[in-house]
Amino acid sequence: MDNEELAAWLRLQLTPGVGNETARRLLAAFGLPGDIWNQSFSAWQTVTNAKTARALQSVPSALPVAVKRLRDWLDESPAHQLVTLADARYPAALLNTADPPLMLYLRGRPEVLSHVRKLAIVGSRNPTPQGETNARQFARSLTQSGLCVVSGLALGVDGAAHAGALEGGGPTIAVVGTGLDTVYPQRHAPLATHIAENGLIVSEYPLGTPPLAAHFPQRNRIIAGLCQGTLVVEAAVKSGSLITARCAAEQGREVFAIPGSIHAPQSRGCHALIRQGAKLVESAQDILEDLQVVDKVDRLSDPAPDRLSPPGDDLLEAMGHDPVGLDALKARTGLETAALQARLLELELDGQVSRMPGGLLQRVSTG
Rank of each mutant, 00 (worst) to 15 (best):
P190G: 10
A235F: 08
L14A: 12
P305S: 00
L63R: 04
Q39D: 04
F216C: 11
S301T: 00
R136A: 12
G108F: 10
N49S: 13
L226G: 04
D2I: 01
N3A: 14
L360N: 00
H115Y: 12
S203K: 02
H321A: 13
T22A: 14
K51H: 11
N126C: 09
C227T: 04
E250C: 05
P127R: 05
I222E: 03
Q276G: 00
L102D: 01
L155I: 08
R363S: 10
A79L: 11
I223V: 15
A249F: 13
K330V: 08
K296F: 10
V324Y: 07
L153C: 05
G108L: 10
E76A: 15
Y184E: 08
M356F: 09
M1R: 10
L85G: 05
I222A: 11
P310I: 08
A214Y: 15
E21K: 14
G252P: 03
P64F: 06
A154C: 10
P211T: 09
T172W: 01
E76S: 15
A165V: 03
L288N: 01
E317A: 15
R332I: 09
L191T: 06
R69I: 04
Y90A: 11
G177I: 01
K279C: 11
Q13A: 15
V83M: 06
D298E: 13
F256C: 05
L308T: 08
A139V: 04
V157N: 05
V122Y: 05
T172D: 03
E348D: 10
V65L: 12
K68Y: 02
P129S: 13
N96W: 02
A93H: 04
M103Y: 01
Q276P: 00
A331S: 13
T182L: 15
R343D: 07
C227A: 08
T209R: 03
P100R: 02
T244C: 15
K68D: 14
Y184A: 12
R246V: 00
N3T: 10
V175N: 02
Q251M: 14
K238S: 11
N134P: 00
R343N: 05
N96P: 00
R125Q: 02
K68F: 06
L212F: 14
L180A: 06
Q276T: 03
Q251F: 12
D327N: 09
V150L: 08
G146R: 02
G17V: 07
L14F: 10
A235V: 03
L70R: 03
A28E: 15
N3D: 14
P265E: 07
L226V: 02
L316T: 08
H194V: 05
P190N: 12
S61P: 01
N96L: 12
M1S: 13
G269E: 02
K51N: 11
S261Y: 01
G208T: 05
L288K: 05
P91Q: 09
C227K: 03
G225W: 01
Q341K: 12
I287R: 05
T22L: 12
V176H: 06
T143F: 11
W73E: 10
S301W: 00
Y184I: 10
T193Q: 15
G260A: 11
P210K: 04
G17N: 01
V122P: 01
G334A: 09
N3K: 13
I195H: 04
I287P: 00
A163L: 12
L106V: 12
Q81F: 03
A213V: 00
A139P: 02
E21D: 08
P357C: 06
H115K: 07
D295Y: 10
F216Q: 08
E5A: 15
E204S: 08
